[in-house]
Design a binder for these strands. Structure first.
Lengths: 187, 187
DNA sequence: GCTATCCTATGACGATCGTTATAGCCAATG
DNA sequence: CATTGGCTATAACGATCGTCATAGGATAGC
């Protein structure tokens, strides 16, 4: 019970302030659990906590993608951008993607970084498979999927810096149009 | 003389480990200057140092863009991706973009964040203007420019996490093809 | 040669960090 | 009712952080 709250709280703090600025003390306080409990639940320390936070965040996105992609790649991409739009706009541009936050602060937390890589790979693979199922050649599908994930993540960062939702909307508009043309050409 | 070395060193450390993990002590040591000098040159403290580091990095990219865009938007985009490819691959996936690193770690350094926003805006504007000059309608040009910047930055993050240059190459391939088709359609 | 100005050198300050240890509570099991 | 085991509570450790203050050295202009 407490455990999940700690992980969820850590993920929220990481996506706002970054991994290094997220202290275990504050995570514990934010979750209403004592500091000692954190090391009881996560004997691996900060590395383990960050890793689980990344994995949790990645899974939430994965599940939404899995569900929406059944209605086709266009719907999946729409939902993907919708998710990030909600995060960025819903926090007054103060939160972004924890996966990115961990990936940008190297070295000291190798397992967390590996979890980030896995998250990117999972999302890309989901999108690519859906595109393939709709007639896009495998190589092209992989490229497009990477483009969608990368562009969305980059746009989220731009939105936060500029305190505007426009980069995300611009990117979403361009990519939905591009995917539409690619898919309609193959059907 | 020393001053520029401090800023350049700070930018290098920020793009590798992030802003919070970049301590002024280590920046000074890395630049071979005493800690006291840092506060002599940058009385604004870490905020000022980070701000100047972001601005310096942004200007380097801006200059390359300005030069290459004279040969057309396609050449500019090629150079933009080439720059990031060099950074990521040339550091064994340990360095990324300092502008992103600062943008992802909020709040505590507001001027540095503003400098990040300005960097994104400058790059986007340069690309958009070039596209407009080649017949792309203003609104569309702005969208495409944002897509290029966002996708490149996102791909850099993915490359670091996955320790592979492929995301950047995939995104570059898709976007150069897209821009080619957009431009050739308008000429 | 004197002085004023720029930079260095050194050390300290309070705060916070990740992590560990130890002692105690409290509920469930027998 | 006793005991065990999961969780709490509390405090401490060494380290590092951003920042500031103060004293010393060098170098330039007069």
């Amino acid at each position: 019970m407490s455990r999940e709250q700690i992980v969820a709280g850590a993920a929220d703090m990481i996506r706002r302030r970054g991994l290094n600025a997220t202290s275990i003390r504050e995570v514990a306080k934010h979750a209403g659990t004592p500091l000692g409990s954190t090391y009881h639940y996560f004997p691996g320390g900060k590395n383990q906590l960050a890793t689980e936070a990344v994995r949790l965040s990645a899974e939430i996105v994965t599940r939404v993608l899995d569900k929406k992609l059944r209605q086709g790649p266009a719907e999946g991409v729409r939902a993907f951008f919708g998710l990030w739009r909600e995060v960025v706009a819903g926090t007054d541009f103060q939160a972004g993607c924890p996966v990115v936050a961990v990936a940008v602060e190297e070295a000291a937390h190798p397992e967390a970084l590996a979890a980030s890589a896995e998250a990117f790979r999972a999302w890309s693979r989901q999108l690519a498979e859906s595109l393939e199922q709709h007639g896009v050649e495998a190589r092209r599908a992989a490229q497009l999927a990477t483009l969608v994930v990368g562009a969305a993540e980059g746009a989220v960062v731009m939105c936060r810096a500029q305190r505007s939702i426009q980069p995300l909307d611009d990117v979403a508009a361009e990519l939905t149009a591009l995917l539409e043309s690619v898919i309609s050409a193959r059907t």
